[in-house]
Design a binder for these strands. Structure first.
Lengths: 205, 205
DNA sequence: ATGTATACGTACCGATCGGTAACATTGTCA
DNA sequence: TGACAATGTTACCGATCGGTACGTATACAT
């Protein structure tokens, strides 16, 4: 359970004299550093230095580094489903096109130098302990992804929707990982094509 | 560049010169700890303690912790291709059955509590820097995996072998990751089935 | 002006990080 | 027996780790 700390990140920012709160600056910097270089690789000292604040400020807004990491992932979660819902909204009532749009987007994102994959996936690799605050957020995100993909497989009329949903999840996770492993020209660019082949093979009765 | 250290791990053990035993114990312990809990999470002190040796012994056999991590992955690499070649040898001249055997095995391995995925993949996530010694080994392993899968896709007579090979790689990486994310009952158990569907859809002319 | 609450900074903590210097001990072979 | 190589022992290094005690500055209400 969170304390009453760090739950105020949604407010103001547009008020008359509202200088960017320390907590927001800290979270923004932590987001960037944790994602790009890994959570374990980044110390709190570097975060506060880059954020232009001091360490006690960090610990007034976040109870610990682990909880800051969890907050980073909660923010990541929000933006993740925003992107997902964009792909869904772009093709109302057409789950196959929704998947294709989402995967095409992922495939494109992987084709940049220094692509770092999915922050959720990476955090789970960094923290094998299931009770770690960051991992809890990560696992919840992935459970939700699985739930949605299976739902879309049902809507597509798949012969075995659970298998197709899981197959799509495997392809997605594979794209995240191989995107950061291979960089440009890697297998991740083929994720949408393979997903479409898999869907096609899973539909027909 | 490695020095002339730590390149002697393949020899003797029964030979007249009964050489470094400390190095082997260290590497064995490091292998287990690095794989199960992550490289960054394990300090050299814990390694030497569990191995029943002292720190100078470690640094006599390995130039640095990073190089010890690389040695761990080189060992992992050896065993990885052993498992791969076993699946291949079990079905001579039948690449589709070889893939199926390999993936079935992966799917089964993922269905245990506290499954930790692929050591190569995990190391790459832990070390985004492409020049890190551990990552160099990891990337080479994955390049080789891609090469072999594409070759097998050719041998299967795929319409677009590169796409199929990459699709299989995505499924495999997805299984490694989702295996450790979801634990028992997760999507990774469906990896062989989905691969077979994908192959089927990629063959017919 | 004064009290009060909140936000922030200086300086510091003990623990652990990866790594090393210097020396003692052991086992093996010549 | 002597020489050598491998390992162990003890003590230490500077840097960084996550985290905190405590004093100070600012804002606002009375």
């Amino acid at each position: 359970m969170p304390t009453d700390k760090n739950i105020d990140l949604t407010i103001s920012e547009g008020h008359a004299f509202a200088p960017p709160k320390a907590a927001k600056k800290i979270l923004d910097v932590a987001y960037d550093l944790f994602y790009r270089r890994g959570i374990r690789a980044i110390g709190v000292d570097e975060i506060v230095k880059r954020a232009g604040v001091t360490k006690p400020s960090l610990y007034r807004s976040f109870p610990s580094k682990d909880e800051l990491a969890a907050s980073y992932l909660r923010q990541y979660d929000l933006e993740y489903w925003e992107r997902f819902d964009e792909a869904v909204a772009a093709h109302p009532g057409d789950p196959r096109a929704q998947i294709k749009a989402f995967l095409t987007r992922i495939g494109k994102r992987t084709q940049v130098a220094d692509y770092r994959g999915c922050g959720m996936t990476n955090a789970a690799v960094e923290y094998p302990d299931h009770s770690h605050p960051a991992r809890v957020v990560s696992e919840a995100n992935k459970q939700e992804l699985r739930r949605r993909l299976r739902g879309m497989a049902v809507a597509m009329g798949a012969q075995d929707p659970d298998t197709l949903g899981d197959g799509l999840l495997l392809l997605i996770e594979g794209a995240y990982i191989s995107g950061q492993l291979f960089g440009l020209g890697g297998p991740a660019q083929a994720v949408a094509r393979n997903a479409d082949l898999l869907i096609e093979a899973s539909l027909k009765k």
